[in-house]
Design a protein around this nucleic acid. Structure first.
Lengths: 239, 239
DNA sequence: ACCTGAACACCGTTCAAGT
DNA sequence: ACCTGAACACCGTTCAAGT
């Protein structure tokens, strides 16, 4: 919660060619809405109301306007989600590289990624289709690559390691968060699932019956560390 | 494409307590709609039109009715997605356990999982919130656990391995499929991203600039195998 | 340059009414 | 038992019109 605001790395970057919002410049009269203000309001709505409650009308309400007014600044709902996404990636902490500690540093990044995802429960679903090319995303990529390359990984392995780290952590967290912001029926906890599994006929599902107790939610942190160990140890072996 | 229809393991299972659709029984007059027919039609719409085009009205049209008619059979759009989800899990192939080959067999399951996900490009997003408790999902869990346990993994590690396998493969595939069914601006290919990365100022992003070529899409299969190797080797070491 | 209200073409779901 | 049409309360986005 106190872990900070997005960092930013200096000047302007040209946006990738396929996404350039109808972003006009400057403002003039009295306190006009900025796209930053919209982004913050939208993130607030996303965190509080979930993805289901996330509508342009709802965000506009937060800013005391109508939905139509937002379109002058952000182009589309999807473009707004891009902005939020990069804003939040800025919260991921990537340490400066210490070559002898690259394994531990990679794990730190992974833990930070998971923590940020849990802090903004619904954003991870938003991140799915998006190829991260915002300024904060680029800076994150750059800095993780720095850790891996100064750690001694060859370039192709460093890139694979980075991409796999992201997708792996995302997969884990997605699974962990379950149907967070979803409406649906009351979200069954992992423990409820555990006892449902335990209730199945043991003759037809002997292996499930024998292991049902281990499906409980308790082991999540441990499971995450196991995943990181598998990943990083294997990487080190191949470096 | 010819890899088969859902399997099913014998009799009826009571659904988990939190999801029981207002499913009534039997039919009588002339060719009434069944929930199976709705499921198939819905899967067809999902595969052809994507998640964006997936609306109750569109599915009803496929069956020459109005949207309201579907509600007698499936309860809600979300319940329908549950049905589709389990229907497709049935396509995942899990071999009978051969204790000496458990490592290779686990990889086979992972590859099948990825293949199925790619065959139904948008279903993976559907799977996210869902805790898989349908008959096909249970059978899949049971059979993978069988492989792991006869392979010699202790129960807690077997469960962790299973859960991590699923979330890891899902994470990878999610990343790989990108914003498949999304509307959005023209989906930038991984190669387009590669050349965008290559165009960045090398003084500010030296590590990205040095490795941009490796971000290309080409290495996906190889990257997937690397992931499986890391995962399975590490598991074997801990067994 | 910035904002607005009203409208367009959609949604999921409910419900009274039909057969 | 099964199906229907019409309605309710929403969407994202556009656009002419205002300041």
């Amino acid at each position: 919660m106190d872990e900070g605001k997005p960092r930013s790395e200096g000047g302007q970057l040209t946006a990738p060619p396929w996404q350039r919002a109808p972003q006009r410049a400057a403002r003039r009269r009295r306190e006009p809405i900025t796209s930053e203000a919209i982004t913050e309001a939208a993130l607030r709505v996303l965190d509080n109301e979930g993805l289901d409650g996330f509508s342009m009308r709802r965000i506009a309400e937060e800013l005391d306007t109508g939905a139509a007014s937002l379109y002058w600044h952000v182009g589309s709902k999807d473009g707004l989600l891009d902005l939020i996404f990069d804003r939040v990636i800025g919260e991921v902490q990537v340490p400066d590289p210490q070559p002898r500690r690259w394994r531990e540093q990679l794990k730190e990044v992974a833990r930070s990624l998971r923590a940020v995802a849990k802090r903004h429960r619904d954003l991870i679903r938003v991140s799915l289709g998006r190829i991260p090319t915002g300024p904060n995303a680029l800076s994150c990529t750059e800095r993780v690559l720095a850790i891996l390359r100064t750690g001694g990984l060859p370039d192709d392995l460093a890139v694979s390691a980075y991409l796999l780290l992201i997708s792996t952590v995302n997969g884990f967290t997605l699974d962990e968060l379950g149907n967070a912001g979803q409406a649906g029926p009351l979200p069954p906890s992992a423990d409820a699932v555990g006892s449902y599994l335990a209730s199945l006929p043991a003759d037809r599902f002997p292996n499930i019956a024998a292991t049902a107790e281990h499906f409980a939610d308790a082991g999540q942190d441990q499971r995450f560390e196991l995943l990181l160990d598998l990943f990083v140890d294997g990487l080190a072996q191949r470096a």
